[in-house]
Amino acid sequence: MIANILTNRIVNDIAGGTAQGVIIGLVALCLVLVWRATRVLNFAQGPMAMFVTYIGMTQMDHHANFWVAAAISVAVGFIFSALTEIVIVKPLYHKAEINPIVVMVGMFTLLEAVASAVWTNIPRYPTAPFSSINFQSEGNPTGLSPLSTFQIGAALAIMTLVAILFNYTSLGLKLRASALAPEVSKLLGIRVGRLLTLGWGIAGAVGAVAGVVISLNPGGLAPNMLDAMFILGFIAAAIGGLDSPLGALVSGIVIGVVMQLINDYWNSNYADMVAVVLLVVVLMLRPQGIFTKNSTRRV
């Protein structure tokens, strides 16, 4: 009975889709964190995560162990993203004529070009510490492998940490205040500029986690490895509501599962299209996203 459930086709699709979906959710979370902090849609999020994933994971070529390489990616992801905010985004805050989006698109192109120059376009396959062969139940495959289980666990752990940081700590209160009401926060003595930089740094670290996990998947580590994921993450963020971290996670999982079901039961070529249709429908019905409260701004 249990074995039947564990190897049931739909259940397997849901499990496999969730493993993909949490990563979409992580990418969406990065976008949401940056949007909440500075009202910038960071179109370079994908390549930034790709770039720092390379920096960390290529350390494995020099005999670093996977965890050390992953930690380097995350740390560099934090620093790189925070520096981007200081060097590129902050100077643009007061220049209405230069849209940060245009600059971020430029950065997108630049980072992918530099990555293919330095590391070539041939994918690399970092050795994962977990097997990607699905668990078996009475001789039949289930929907999860040790790797996808790790993937779900890591993503949920990151989400939980971010949620605790933002909702239950003093630092989180200052981060939220700086994003919601920068001027009032300054009047209260909060170092808003620093906290917005920190918000970008956290987003960069989360993006690096997504990058590391994706590099363990069949596509491996490649300069354009995050392009498709980024588009799905953007769709998830827009569906969930750009202001809602929880919305990012839930919509990410829903998109992952729906796409997996379409791949399996219909035609994999339609999966991306369906995600876009989903986005258009949600934006028509609820332009602010599903999880955003009809916002009461500060008074």
């Binding site: 009032v184 909060i190 701004r297």
Partner: peptide, 25 residues
């Protein structure tokens, strides 16, 4: 400085608003 219009953060609870004041100072 209590600004014009009070500058209370509507999305925060009363206590969060107060905590923020102490954290800033």
């Amino acid at each position: 400085h209590v600004p014009e219009g009070r500058g209370v953060i509507a999305e925060f609870t009363v206590e969060e608003n107060l905590r923020l004041g102490a954290l800033g100072a």
